[in-house]
Design a protein around this nucleic acid. Structure first.
Length: 647
RNA sequence: GCUGGUGUGGCUCAAUGGUAGAGCAGCUCAUUCGUAAUGAGCAGGUUGUCAGUUCGAUUCUGACCACCAGCUCCA
């Protein structure tokens, strides 16, 4: 007999070799029916795992992450099972559970269309209805390989081969006639997957490598209860309404034109206004914090990029001017600002007393991104970044890094995006030396310095291997769009390689010449991308301080337009952005529904107001908030505008 | 770049191998002292582009372009 300590401290005795599933059964039908996986001594495990000694056991349901994972992983098996029934020739690749659902990759001749997806869904329903028990068994790797090869599962065979020779057993899960190589965990039977939906079908490279064959990936989601799934799907649809790419066009913030080309949006007056407000705010704040603005050229001879190493790494991604064969000098539009600002540093000799030198620039960059990469205002071929480089001594590195981070955090808080971001420590991949310059020692040093800084600052981050820049490690500040896709909003990088390449030096206190450290940083990121995330964060209803149109003043009849115009002019003199469109002074002029709800304030002027010297105020989202004096309105609005820096 | 999808007036959508309609938005006039309306009228589309098939293409075929989701990439 063994002692099993359950959640809550209760201890029960069971026969040695009892499975977690049996324990769940003994606890009651309710918990058994809800069981998706278990945790044995803190480690997630399959319910079929035999318990061989005293342990702590927790039955995990769909309410836990591990439980959801097991549940959805089983759903992915049912998907693969259904595909195998309908398309026996389809080869199986992999099919894990992911955040909010699952996917499965197949290699198949037939292209999966939405109609076929419906068919597959129908077959999955049958498999669920059959309530097939899911069994688990293990084999030696040779036997597993023989199975994979005889059944034509080339991808499974490749996976098994990687494990063969290590003496590891290979585990399988079987439901009905369908057997799948898998580590689990899974729920007890297929009948439990009550609610599921296949959501999309796309291509995906085998093992995530674009040199490999592209497989067909089917995405889906699954829940224990139908209404939970409906609520989830409705929430996804709701989130899509905030999609900057749709809303930003609807609200006339930006547009694109076929005849201009991909990744080259036109910022319309309202969008341009928001960018202008952001830029003024950012440049002023940077200057207050000791950053000096530079203005550097939009292009340079290829020599500059050859020196920096960008030519080797990113030549294909640059817009070249001139013909390499016939022209003596090839120019390229700048894809980054770094080497330009380095030239500013090199303008004269520098002493340790000059450092740190902080250069900033609102810098428009050009990158010839591959055609499939462009997306809304998130990925563009021309964009403007709040760029900056702090050139400092090793001793100053930590303090400078901290200042860069503080500036970024200040910006994020001001924009109201701080709660939506996550930190990522992007390191190099020592196994992919092609991608990076410098020696392992240099990388260890730079990453070590950065690690120390992050720990001192108590930053909670996720480490990501292979995400570093070619010249140094990065602290990336990540944000998710309405589809849940993650992108880098802000990045701060530690670089000890490029100063040497460019011959940047300073004379230290002891009279010796040294290479400085360079911190590459952005304070607010790319303006276009930041705008995109602001649109999504606020569903287009920008906070007052950044709203392109803050106040619209309307007369109740045309007789009152003189009063309305005077009120508008007074508010404009106070610095508010008031609509000056004369047509809006006409009663009956309609503002498009979508835009109407985005304007923070609307003021109505009629006789009552004119006589009493008040304004009828209508606030976004609240409707009529009553009459108030102009002074009271102004003080309220000013207070609201200043909210941006109250945190 | 790859896989799949989409492309009809500003927006949402309809229709057809015989050169296109609706609602909303827009414009004009009239009306209007209360929260973006009412009435009357008008205008707006070489159906993404270019080729091909056809007596005839917006509809069928192909190429290209753009947009969307995903993969890969992202200095």
């Amino acid at each position: 007999m063994i002692k099993v300590t359950l959640k809550g401290g209760q201890v029960r005795e069971y026969e040695r070799g009892v499975t977690a599933m049996d324990v769940a059964k003994s606890l009651g039908a309710g918990i058994y029916k809800a069981a998706c996986a278990c945790s044995i001594d803190g480690a997630a495990a399959d319910l079929r795992t035999p318990l061989e000694s005293d342990c702590e056991l927790e039955i995990l349901t769909f309410d836990s992450d591990e439980g959801k994972h097991a549940f959805r992983h089983t759903a992915s098996h049912i998907l693969a099972h259904a595909v195998k029934r309908l398309f026996p020739k389809a080869k199986l690749a992999i099919g894990p559970a992911i955040d909010n659902g699952f996917y499965y990759d197949f290699d198949t001749e037939t292209a999966f269309t939405p109609e076929i997806l419906e068919q597959i869904e129908g077959e999955m329903k049958k498999i669920v209805k059959e309530s097939l028990p899911i069994e688990c068994f293990e084999t030696e790797s040779e036997e597993a390989l023989a199975w994979a090869e005889s059944s034509g599962e080339a991808y499974k065979a490749e996976l098994i081969r990687e494990h063969s020779g290590k003496g590891e057993k290979i585990s399988f899960f079987k439901q009905g006639e369908f057997t799948e190589l898998c580590a689990g965990p899974h729920v007890p039977d297929t009948g439990r997957i009550k609610a599921f939906k296949l959501t999309s079908c796309t291509g995906a490279y085998w093992r995530g490598d674009s040199n490999n064959k592209m497989l067909q990936r089917i995405y889906g989601t699954a829940f224990t209860k139908r209404d939970e799934m409906e609520a989830y799907l409705a929430a996804v649809e709701e989130a899509k309404k905030r999609d900057h790419n749709k809303l930003g066009r609807e609200l006339e913030l930006f547009m694109t034109s076929d005849i201009i080309g991909q990744g080259l949006p036109i910022m319309l007056p309202k969008g341009a206004r928001v960018l202008q407000l952001l830029q003024r705010f950012v440049e002023d704040e940077e200057q207050k914090r000791g950053w000096q603005m530079t203005k550097t050229p939009y292009m340079a001879k290829s020599d500059l990029y050859k020196l920096s190493g960008h030519w080797d790494h990113y030549k294909d991604g640059m817009f070249l001017i001139g013909d390499e064969e016939s022209d003596k000098d090839i120019y390229a539009l700048r894809p980054m600002t770094c080497p330009f600002q380095y030239q500013a540093y090199l303008n004269r000799g520098r002493s340790y007393r000059d450092l740190p030198i902080r250069y900033s620039e609102t810098s428009t960059l050009f990158r010839n991104e591959a055609s499939g990469e462009m997306h809304g205002l998130i990925r563009l071929r021309q964009f403007t970044i709040s760029e900056g480089h702090s050139i400092c001594t090793p001793e100053q590195l930590e303090e400078e890094f901290k200042k860069c981070l503080e500036l970024a955090i200040f910006m994020l808080k001001t924009l109201g995006l701080y709660d939506d971001v996550a930190y990522r420590f992007s390191q190099w991949d020592p196994d992919d030396r092609e991608k990076y310059i410098g020696t392992a020692e240099q990388w260890d040093e730079a990453q070590g310095a950065m690690l120390k800084i992050l720990d001192h600052l108590e930053i909670k981050y996720k480490t990501e291997i292979g995400e570093a820049a070619f010249y140094g490690p990065k602290l990336d500040i990540q944000i998710r769009n309405v589809y849940g896709k993650e992108d880098t909003l802000i990045t701060i990088q530690v670089d000890q390689m490029l100063a040497e390449k460019f011959g940047m030096e300073y004379v230290d206190a002891d009279g010796s010449k040294k290479n400085p450290y360079i911190i590459h940083r952005t304070s607010i990121g790319c303006y276009e991308r930041t705008l995109a995330l602001l649109i999504e964060r606020y569903a287009g209803a920008f906070p007052l301080w950044i709203a392109p149109e803050q106040i619209r003043v309307l007369p109740i009849s045309e007789r009152h337009h003189e009063y309305a115009r005077a009120a508008a002019q007074r508010l404009e003199l106070l610095g508010f952005r008031v609509t000056s469109d004369e047509r809006s002074e006409k009663i009956g002029y309609k503002i498009r529904e979508a835009q109407l709800e985005k304007i923070p304030y609307m003021l109505l002027v009629g006789d009552k107001e004119t006589e009493s010297g008040t304004l009828s105020v209508r606030r976004r989202g609240e409707g009529d908030i009553g009459a108030m004096s102009e002074d009271a309105f102004v003080s309220m609005a000013l207070k609201e505008a200043a909210e941006k820096v109250r945190f």
